[in-house]
């Protein structure tokens, strides 16, 4: 770096200019944020619109007439309460499965040395290249052979453990000081107790991330339930929503109402766990 280029940069800017720049930046970022979330706002506002508004050229951001009845109407079109319930059962099961099994495996891989441990870790990581989209046909045959077609466990079974979850928990548990574990072990605590009372509390941020992401991904599942469910009582909401537009009197505005309802649970879970999630993402330094 030359001396010439160094000189001007050293001159401090006047304070008011700095503050102006800051607020200008804030305004720009806010504008950008609005632009990014605009589709979400559109979804919400459209869900309160009259059906025929969908065919107009202009977007009416605040409905002149609100139609909250879109929500009860939409819910009554098909068995949406059942579909949401099914999605809830499946997603909670997937979340629980991931939290339990990924933590167990993560603990085993992070704090124990045994022959083949490294190989096991690589083996688990390698399943990242085997998503359900790839193994759809044989996975279906496995689930069928288990007698799980048209059951809840058939839907959530193949989603119960995710390699990323194992990896996430292993990395989190690595940073738990082994001295704590040793101390508990010397005190005679059982291994499960150590995991539950010593390790897990230290990993709350990672667990929160795992919970939110696994819930979201299960809530999102479409292809798998489409393949494995053939009875209405086990359909999940995405299956219902895709077919929603196919019948008379199902206006797009009501479709948006279902979309809004489908979004709420994930947002809520995120809101509840947000404090931990932010730390889990390594954002504790963020002002």
């Amino acid at each position: 770096m030359t001396a010439a280029s160094r000189a001007p940069a050293r001159r401090p800017r006047p304070a008011h200019l700095r503050s102006l720049r800051r607020w200008l930046g804030a305004a720009l970022l806010a504008a950008l944020t609005v632009l990014v979330v605009l589709p979400i706002l559109w979804m919400v506002t459209t869900s309160f619109q009259a059906g025929e508004k969908m065919f107009q050229l202009t977007t009416e951001w605040i409905p002149t007439v609100w139609h909250p009845e879109n929500y009860p109407n939409a819910l009554s079109r098909a068995a949406f309460p059942t579909y949401f319930f099914n999605s809830g059962v499946v997603s909670v099961a997937v979340m629980a499965g991931n939290v339990v099994f990924c933590t167990l495996a993560g603990y085993g891989l992070a704090k124990f040395r045994f022959p083949g441990d490294r190989f096991m870790l690589l083996l688990i990581l390698s399943t990242l290249m085997l998503p359900l989209e790839v193994t759809l046909v044989p996975t279906f045959l496995v689930v069928y052979n288990l007698g799980w077609v048209n059951t809840y466990q058939g839907i959530f079974g193949p989603l119960l453990v995710d390699a990323f979850g194992v990896f996430l928990m292993r990395q989190a548990i690595l940073s738990v000081p082994s001295d704590y574990i040793e101390a508990a072990r010397i005190d005679g605590a059982s291994e499960l107790r150590i995991l539950w009372q010593v390790v897990a509390p230290q990993c709350r941020p990672a667990l929160a991330v795992l919970a939110v992401l696994s819930f979201r991904d299960s809530w999102d599942q479409f292809l798998w339930p489409l393949t494995v469910v053939s009875q209405d009582e086990y359909r999940t909401f995405p299956l219902g929503l895709v077919k929603f537009g196919e019948y008379y009197g199902n206006p797009a505005t009501e479709q948006m109402a279902i979309a809004v309802l489908a979004t709420i649970p994930v947002f809520l879970l995120f809101a509840v766990l947000q404090r931990w999630v932010n730390r889990g993402f390594g954002l504790s330094g963020l002002k």
């Binding site: 489409l226 393949t227 053939s230 209405d232 077919k243 196919e246």
Partner: peptide
Amino acid sequence: QYFPFGDLGQKLSVG
């Protein structure tokens, strides 16, 4: 049991 019109054929095949 009943299925969306476009899904019935596929569901039967799998069945």
